[in-house]
């Protein structure tokens, strides 16, 4: 039972973080979000999931969020009906390198909504759901920073990282870029998509997650079997 310790720590820490954040959220727009704590021993098939991807102008703490894309995964299906793609109004000039990658220009970004509005919508969706992302630590950090910046409340949630999952479930020697989203998708026979658009990446990540779970061939997976821990 080697993962018990890890699980125990995660459980304890998660509960602490959650309670602390829940307290801080009292009478803020995030209050609602902390109403629903997702139990980690629930059946994965019954767990509401949201595949999420942010586009930003960098990976630093003060990076600007440019776009959020998300889609729900219900009943082992990516439901495009629930797909959302929201542009976020930039507070400062974009850093050039990131703009080239994401093909989002100042003008296009300016048409976006206020970061707080986008966050409010997103939190509504995320309430009672686990988040699926490729490299979920980044999404977690972005969400946390943005929530602190806008509402003074940290973000605590259940994260599933498809990159992590691949390493854990299917360990093997890989090239430096062997865990990139596109590379992994190709291994599962998934089509190649134009990279770096928030929604496309969220859908791509959701599909990868379905493929990983299908290949894992384990009946009755629980949420805790797929969670990213620590």
């Amino acid at each position: 039972m080697k993962l018990d310790w890890q699980n125990w720590f995660y459980k304890k820490h998660f509960a602490q973080h959650w309670e602390r954040a829940k307290k801080a959220a009292k009478s803020t727009p995030m209050d609602h979000y902390y109403d629903a704590l997702l139990p980690e021993d629930m059946l994965l098939d019954d767990t509401p999931l949201v595949a999420l991807d942010f586009e930003s102008d960098g990976l630093k703490k003060d990076a600007q969020l440019l776009e959020a894309g998300w889609v729900r995964i219900i009943d082992r299906a990516v439901k495009l009906k629930t797909a959302q793609q929201l542009r976020i109004q930039a507070g400062s000039r974009l850093q050039e390198a990131a703009v080239i990658i994401h093909r989002i220009t100042d003008d296009a970004a300016a048409k976006g909504q206020q970061e707080a509005d986008v966050l409010a919508l997103l939190l509504e969706t995320l309430k009672g759901s686990a988040i699926v992302a490729h490299g979920a630590a980044v999404e977690h950090a972005f969400l946390n920073t943005a929530c602190l910046r806008n509402f003074g409340v940290p973000f605590v949630g259940r994260f599933i990282c498809t990159m992590h999952l691949e390493k854990r479930w299917f360990p093997k020697q890989r090239t430096a870029d062997g865990l990139r989203l596109g590379k992994l998708r190709a291994q599962y026979g998934l089509p190649s998509y134009r990279a770096h658009d928030g929604l496309t990446d969220a859908i791509a990540c959701g599909e990868l997650f379905l493929a990983q779970c299908a290949r894992r061939k384990v009946e009755n997976l629980l949420l805790k079997d797929v969670l990213m821990k620590g």
């Binding site: 082992r76 299906a77 990516v78 495009l80 797909a83 599909e207 493929a211 299908a214």
Partner: peptide, 14 residues
């Protein structure tokens, strides 16, 4: 139509 689609994955042989 695209918005109504549900995407599913089926490994070989299923």
């Amino acid at each position: 139509l695209a918005r109504k689609i549900e995407v599913r994955y089926f490994p070989r042989g299923t």
